[in-house]
């Protein structure tokens, strides 16, 4: 089977700073992949490129066989907006700082894009939204505003909002880093239950090592814009081969 995500020789620069250099990376459909590594190593950039929040300069990236750059594309993304929107329709993202829309209720946050973008009827969108809110345990909060919820609850709504678009690939960018320690568990619980979804491809950037070990099919250790080492979580965590991986794990696991 062809990989759903394929980076080949991708180079990403911010001005003079090269964040990714000749980056190669593939993810199979349904695979749950965790990216770990020191901050600034380029893990989040990989997700942000996939979500088309950041352009990249060289190489090719395909999603479900669709290249991000168009042959005759212009502008930083080397693609027309229409093309980018087609790519985005397969990808969802959960942000570190939730990024819920503060002026909309929980329900409206979840149905906004299905109604506007997918063209669902309001009723249908609401039914789906309530199901999803049930799944994240927040159906009773559907008429609340984000500011009335705890951080953990907001993040669970954000997950429901991303799922409402039925993405094939779901990206989690440090979803628990902005949370108080006692709220981390409820969010990880929701992500854990998603990990059982057979078809959903998940890319997770996190500092929760135990969680990564538990839910991932594969763990990739990032450093300085490259994957230094990758493999099954058991092997990476119990017997890392690269000294830099060992150093990093020793520092975060204590």
């Amino acid at each position: 089977m062809n990989p759903i995500i394929r980076f080949s020789n991708v180079t990403k620069r911010f001005g003079a700073l090269t964040v990714l250099r000749d980056f190669d990376f593939e993810v199979k459909q349904g695979e749950k992949v965790t990216l770990i590594g020191p901050s600034g190593s380029g893990k989040s950039t990989v997700l942000r490129i996939l979500m088309t929040l950041e352009p990249f300069q060289e190489g090719t990236l395909t999603l479900a066989g669709m290249p991000y750059h168009e042959p005759d594309g212009h502008g930083p993304f080397k693609a027309r907006e229409k093309h980018l929107r087609q790519i985005r329709s397969h990808v969802g993202m959960v942000f570190q700082s939730f990024n819920l829309f503060p002026h909309m209720t929980v329900l409206r946050n979840v149905i906004e894009a299905p109604v506007r973008v997918l063209g669902l009827s309001r009723n249908e969108a609401e039914c789906r939204a309530v199901d999803l809110l049930n799944m994240v345990g927040l159906a009773d909060k559907k008429d609340h505003y984000p500011s009335q919820l705890s951080g953990g609850q907001q993040q669970r709504v954000a997950i429901a909002r991303a799922l409402a678009m039925r993405p094939r690939v779901l990206l989690f960018d440090e979803p628990t880093s902005a949370l108080d320690p006692q709220l981390v568990g409820e969010v990880l619980g929701v992500i854990r239950s998603l990990a059982h979804e057979h078809d959903l491809t998940m890319l997770l950037v996190t500092h929760e090592m135990r969680f990564a070990r538990e839910v991932s099919d594969r763990v990739c250790f990032f450093d300085k814009g490259q994957i230094v080492e990758q493999g099954e979580p058991e092997r990476i965590f119990s017997s890392p081969e690269q000294p830099r991986t060992r150093e990093f794990l020793a520092s975060v696991l204590g």
């Binding site: 979500m51 929040l53 907006e81 929107r85 993202m93 829309f101 973008v117 991303a162």
Partner: peptide, 21 residues
């Protein structure tokens, strides 16, 4: 910026982002 990024991630058009968000 997070609001703009969330709107992009949800595939809202620029016009929808301005109008609704």
């Amino acid at each position: 910026r997070g609001q703009w990024e969330a709107a992009t991630a949800l595939n809202l058009t620029r016009a929808q982002t301005y109008r609704d968000v």
